[in-house]
Amino acid sequence: MLQSCQNCWFNGLQYGALGLSVGYCSRHDKILNAAEGTTCGQHMRKDLSLKRAKEVASIHKNRYSDSVIINIYRDEEAEREISSDEKDVDLLRGDSVGDLVTNYGKLDTKIISLAQLNMLAGTKYGARAEVAMLSLARGYVSNCMRLNGNWTSGLHIYWWTKNRLAEIPDIQTSDIRTTGGINLHRQVDLTSWSIIMLRLTLIDDVIEHAATQNDPIGEVKGLLQKASEAVQTFNPDKLSKWMRAKAQPALDKKLTYERYQELSRNLHRDT
């Protein structure tokens, strides 16, 4: 499943056991009816660091086309597994997170869509909204770097994510789409751990980009690896404590609120 649409950062509606029963590809504008069994050449793994995700993607792209979604098991173009039928899309838009994901970058700019998901993360849709924001934001930041080469394109996303880095996600029973055959409470713990790590993965993306421009934030490289080494069990409480004690102080040291304001003003003027 790691190479499938359910684990791609262009699908903001699913991540492991969390999400809706269907996904949505923001690249192909298709509903994913069986995301665990489909993929395409644009696939980017959301569970890997930026460098490793790109390495895996280059191999993946050699096998699959960029232009069509493929059924992995039949090795042929997906048909029933995807949909763009307006009735299906309208049903998906009945869900608050689904509505924002299907409209991502269409009605407003992409950063406004991400900001709306970030605000929704503070509601009952919190965990799903945050996963959607983090997933789509990885593609957004990467694309901005490719187009204009400025790491501050991801400045606000970085700030939002840093501020909740150590928070344990509030996961509702309705957020879990499958238990994988294990106890529900254990699946919630595993999902919480995964979301906290997904936050750090996005933070790590921005750090990697900042390092290429010799920005002080780039000096905090390696947090993702350090977190994996420090907390080797899937325990969200231990991971949260490590984030609060180690990761957040290191990040705060390199980007104070005063510097964030200054960079925001510069970003606004550039825009």
Rank of each mutant, 00 (worst) to 15 (best):
A127Q: 01
R186Y: 12
Y158F: 15
W193V: 04
I157W: 02
Q172N: 12
P169I: 07
V188N: 00
L107M: 07
Y158G: 05
T173H: 02
S174P: 00
I182D: 04
Y158K: 10
A127M: 01
T152G: 04
R146P: 00
D175H: 03
N150C: 09
R186C: 03
A115G: 04
M119E: 11
M119N: 07
W159N: 09
T173P: 00
G180L: 09
K124L: 08
T123Q: 01
G122D: 11
K124N: 11
S135E: 04
E167Y: 09
T178K: 12
N148W: 14
S192P: 00
G126V: 02
K106R: 13
N103L: 14
S194D: 13
D108C: 03
D189R: 11
K106Y: 00
N150R: 15
N103G: 06
N103C: 11
T173V: 09
E130N: 11
T173M: 06
E167K: 14
Q116H: 06
A121K: 07
T102P: 03
Q116V: 12
L136C: 03
G105M: 09
L100I: 08
I168E: 04
D108N: 13
A137G: 10
L114K: 04
T102I: 14
S113K: 02
I111T: 10
K162P: 01
T191M: 02
P169R: 05
D108E: 13
N148E: 15
T123K: 03
A166I: 05
N118C: 10
D189Y: 07
A121G: 03
K106M: 09
M119A: 13
I157H: 05
T152K: 13
N183W: 13
A132R: 06
W160N: 15
V141D: 05
G149W: 09
T178Q: 09
R177F: 10
M119S: 08
L184Q: 06
G122T: 06
L155C: 07
M145V: 12
S192F: 03
V141W: 12
K124P: 00
E167L: 15
G122M: 05
N148K: 14
H185V: 10
I176P: 01
Q172C: 03
M119C: 08
L184E: 02
L155S: 06
P169S: 03
Y140E: 06
L117Y: 08
D108A: 13
I111W: 04
A129I: 09
A127V: 03
A115M: 12
S142P: 00
Q187C: 15
D170K: 10
H156W: 15
I111N: 05
K106S: 06
A129R: 02
I195H: 02
C144W: 14
T179W: 10
D99G: 00
Y125K: 05
M133V: 10
L165A: 11
K162E: 13
W160E: 14
